[in-house]
Computed example of a mutant assay.
Amino acid sequence: MNTAHAKAPRRHITGLLLMMAGVACLSANDAIAKALTSGYSPLQILFLRNVIALPFTVIIAVIMGGASALRSHRPVAHLLRGALWVAATMMFFTSVIHLALAEATALIFVAPFFITLISALFLGEEVEWRRWLAVLAGFFGVLVIIRPGGATFQWISLLPVATALVYAVLMLSARWVDARESVWTLLVYLTGAGALLSALIVPLGWVPVRSGDLWLFAGIATFGTAGMTMMTQAFRLAPAVVVAPLDYTGLLWATLFGWLIWQERLDMMTIVGAAIIVTSGVDTILRERRQGSGRTRILMQKEDVADDWEDETDKGQM
């Protein structure tokens, strides 16, 4: 028993490090995607990213979850989740063409608040008044950033918010998947379904890939796969309350990449709005954990796997 307690902090530290590294990788993934949008459509970027990443995703799933990770009991559910992911990713990639990377990233972080709304309104889950306050605070933060009716308002600013809504549905759609399937199965089929569905449409707007851009496509696949893998593993090594708040460090990375690559600078209202969203989000995570909820979801970008069910869900497949 003492040995287990001694190992716990070590596992938590590893989880923290993996989460920070994973968020950095996914932020790099987003930055490369923004760079590629100058020459390619969001759909083509998504397609090539998935096609390149799929073999590595399969290898990782087999190593981490065994051969059973490749078997699905509800393939249609994965196909539907893939459609949601394609839609969300295309909207986000489109938004970063016109918006600062940090601004689009900040708006994405309202996904947990959409989860609360959907859970309460459509899934019949009880939501206490404090969580409703957090939801209102989160949306107030969104209004501060996009400033509807103001001179600086852009309709394109609604795209990351719409992306967050679709991501929220994607996260909750993990309930459609058979409980016998591990998170690695979700990872493989999400990537595979994304590749398949985007392949059906991408020929309509295909642009020949320049040889000088091949390393960027390889980079987006590498950083995206590595980020999802590390964040997934982080949730398995440490409690959600420990690692989930670190997802918000993605905003710092987005700000840094935007400044270094495109000289983007955030105005004070965007910084204030982002601070409100992050504060209310972290408060929601901490409150969920204190109440013993094992289904707090904070993975988005991101998307991607977005599944932090309790360890029992894995059925000992690790």
Rank of each mutant, 00 (worst) to 15 (best):
N50T: 07
N50R: 10
N50H: 12
A53G: 12
P55K: 10
T57R: 10
V58D: 06
V58L: 14
V58Y: 05
V58N: 04
A61W: 08
A61K: 05
V62H: 07
I63V: 15
A69T: 02
S72L: 02
H73F: 13
P75Q: 07
P75Y: 05
A77P: 03
A77W: 00
H78G: 05
H78M: 03
L79H: 02
L84K: 02
L84V: 03
V86Q: 02
T89M: 09
M90R: 04
M91T: 11
F93A: 05
F93W: 03
T94A: 11
S95L: 01
V96Y: 02
I97S: 11
I97A: 13
L101V: 04
A102E: 04
A102S: 08
A104Q: 01
T105V: 07
T105W: 03
A106K: 03
A106C: 05
L107F: 09
I108L: 15
A111R: 04
A111S: 15
A111Y: 10
I115S: 08
S119T: 13
A120S: 14
E125M: 09
E125N: 14
E128A: 14
R131F: 09
R131Q: 14
W132Y: 01
L136E: 02
G138F: 09
F139Q: 01
V142A: 13
L143K: 11
V144Y: 01
V144R: 00
I146K: 07
I146P: 04
G150C: 00
Q154N: 00
W155D: 07
I156K: 01
L158T: 08
L159Y: 04
L159K: 02
L159R: 05
L159Q: 09
P160Y: 08
A164V: 06
V166Y: 09
Y167T: 11
Y167H: 08
Y167D: 08
A168W: 04
L170E: 08
M171F: 00
L172S: 06
R175I: 07
